[in-house]
Amino acid sequence: MKLMRCPLNGERNISEFVCGGEVKAMPDPDKASDADWGRYLFFEDNPDGEIVEWWLHAPSSYWFIARRDTRTEAVLETMTVQEWRERQGTVGSGQAQGQSADSQAHGAQGTNG
């Protein structure tokens, strides 16, 4: 049973996690054509190599980002959403209102599911 390192909770059995799929940047809906939008919704890169994904630690409802190698299944790195956004340089308007993305990524201790 694989181990996954959650940035908040530390190393845990992967059964505590849910994969949220590849991190995809949303095109501007006002500018994108219908075909572009369809590609954004329904096509995946499916890389043979490194992929960046959303992962959820289910018991704490905590979202974070993982870089994974699809060839070896090795998890190369996990980081907070905040850190990922900083690397992308997309930390911006939302921050002006002062909420750290990290505290947003963590929801209240959730119920089952």
Binding site: G20, S61, S93, Q97, G98, G107
Partner: peptide, 15 residues
């Protein structure tokens, strides 16, 4: 609930 948390992790709204 999970999707709300994920969306706002990207949007960064004060909510």
């Amino acid at each position: 609930y999970r999707e709300m948390l994920r969306e706002n992790a990207s949007w960064g709204l004060a909510v």
